[in-house]
């Protein structure tokens, strides 16, 4: 037996192969806990339905917000739901980080010949994202048809790029807020707070004035989670410079969140017992 080293280089393919193996096993085992699966299903419906009811109640009273009518707002809403899906699917284990750190179980992720961030995230597939995906796609189609937006190959590509870029912000925000667990005892609170903010990504950033618009654009970048990328897709709206910056800033923000998370992981394993 070769005892000395890994023979092949650990490229993207290696990680993808491992990833799909672990994830498919996780989904399989999730399915086998029926009660859990069923209640999760109802939870997804309740979560999304209550969001819609709240949205509907507001628009029953107010026909438009800041020049955005019901259908355009619905588009933003649907967009933000879909953009959240990757964070829910693939980065859900962030929610367990505080627990893993408090109990000391986190150290186990440091001993495998794998990237720690990758190994940690690969362990859980967040099935709850399915609810957002179904509701989001359904609503997007409804809004798309209602707004009589054109459909072409180019537009679909644009939509996918926009969704992908927006999802990077969703993921990055979750990574960053979870990473606080490495330094403070109550990182879960930070996660809950940022999770709540994220719900407001479905409103146009123009409602915020002055300094807060800057904050919600660059510091807690909820403006990129639906508003800026959507401007390009909606016929009635004009894209701005920041719309085209979304993919680049998204990548930078994601990379930053990864670095902070890793720094936290190293910091933790250095001091924890």
């Amino acid at each position: 037996m070769d005892n000395t080293s890994i023979k092949r280089k650990r490229g993207l393919r290696f990680y993808l192969r491992i990833y799909f193996k672990i994830i498919s096993q996780d989904i399989k085992s999730k399915m086998s806990y029926r009660a859990d699966f069923i209640t999760t299903f109802f939870g997804m419906i309740a979560l999304n339905l209550s969001g819609f009811i709240a949205f509907w109640v507001i628009f029953k009273n107010f026909p438009q917000i800041n020049g955005w009518d019901y259908r355009e707002m619905l588009f933003l809403y649907a967009f933000s739901l879909i953009a959240l899906v990757p964070a829910e699917f693939f980065f859900d284990n962030n929610w367990n980080l505080q627990q893993a750190i408090v109990t000391g179980d986190f150290i186990k992720y440091c001993f495998k010949p794998l990237n720690i961030f990758f190994y940690y995230m690969s362990e859980v597939f967040g099935i709850r994202g399915l609810g957002q995906l179904v509701f989001g796609v359904g609503t997007l189609i409804y809004a798309w048809v209602g707004l009589a937006l054109p459909v072409s190959f180019l537009i679909i590509v644009k939509l996918l790029i926009a969704l992908f870029s927006a999802s990077l912000f969703m993921i990055a925000l979750r990574n960053l807020s979870a990473a606080t667990c490495f330094w403070i005892i109550n990182g879960l609170h930070v996660m809950n707070i940022t999770n709540k903010f994220r719900d407001y990504a479905r409103y146009p950033i123009t409602i915020f004035g002055g300094v807060f618009r800057v904050i919600f654009t660059f510091v807690i970048p909820i403006a990129f989670m639906a508003y800026y990328p959507s401007l390009e897709l909606l016929d009635t709206k004009q894209p701005v410079f920041l719309t085209y910056l979304t993919p680049i800033y998204g990548i930078i923000f994601f990379w930053l969140s990864y670095k902070v998370w890793m720094k936290g992981a190293m910091n933790y394993s250095g001091t924890g017992s």
Binding site: D36, T39, T40, F42, G43, A46, S50, A54
Partner: peptide, 22 residues
Amino acid sequence: TQSVWGLNIVKETIVMLFGGAA
């Protein structure tokens, strides 16, 4: 049920929305 996320979120959303907190 021995499972918690789904039930808890159902409770939370109902209380939040129909309780008038949202």
